[in-house]
Amino acid sequence: MTDAAILVKNVSKKFGDTLVLRDINLEVPRGQVSCLIGPSGSGKSTLLRCMAFLEQATSGTITIEGEPLGFVEGPNGRRLQTAAELRQTRSKIGMVFQQFNLWPHMTALGNVSASLRRVRKLSKAEAEDRAMAQLEKVGLKERAGFYPSQLSGGQQQRVAIARALALDPTIMLFDEPTSALDPELTGEVLNVMRALADEGMTMVVVTHEIGFAASVGNKICFLDHGKLLFHDTPEKVFAAPREPRLEQFLDTYLDRGAIMLR
C-alpha cells in the first residue's frame, strides 16, 4: 500500500487498432497537483478519462485510494465492477470537462445540488444549502439562479467545478479546463483551481497552460504518442538542458511569446 491517491499500472488503451496509451505507469501523490502535458493526440485526455473510468483501459490496472477502479480481480481473471461498486469507487473523484457539460435545463444551483439530492438523498433545502456553499467558494453565489446559457464560459466552468466538488471528492480530475475559454476568462478558472490546490486537494490536470503547470504543478508528466516519456518536478522538467522532445514541444509555446519559459 503506497500513499498514492491514484496508481496507474501498465495501462494500455486501444481504440480499434490504434494504440493510444502504451504501458503507462504513474503514481499520483496525495495532496499534490499533477499536470499532464503533451501535444494533441498524445493520449493525455484518454489517460485522465481512464482515471474516471469514462474509458476502459484495454489492459493494466488503475487504483483509486487503494481500491481497484472498474475491474475486480478474481480467481478467474478480472470482471467488471457492478454499477454500485463503480459508483462507490468513483465517488472519490470529481471530474471537470473541457466543454463544461453543465445541464442546460438546470440553474447553477440546480447543477451543483443535483447530486446531493439524487445521490446523497439530502432534502432539497439541505442540498441547496451545501450547493450554495460550493458556489460561494468559486465566487458565484449571486449567480446561483442563473441558467448556464446566461453565464460566461468562465462562470460556467466555475459552476462545473462547484458541481464536481459537491460530493466532497478527495481527487479532482481536470480535462483541459480552460481550452474552451478565451485568455481573459482562463484566469478566473485557474484562480479557482489554484485555491483548490492550496487547500491540499489532490488534482490531476490535463492542460496546455504551461505557465499554470509550471507554477502550481508539483509533478509534470509529459506524454507523447501514447507514451509517458517522463515525469518529474517542474523545476527538473523545465530546467535546461531539457529532453529534446519536450524542448521541441515547448518551442511551439515560445513561438507564441511565452518568454517565461526561457
Binding site: 469514462l54 459508483r87 465517488s91 457539460n101 447530486s115 445521490v119
Partner: peptide, 9 residues
Amino acid sequence: EAATCVGFS
C-alpha cells in the same frame, strides 16, 4: 458523462 461522474445511476 457528467451525470455518471457525480454518481447518477
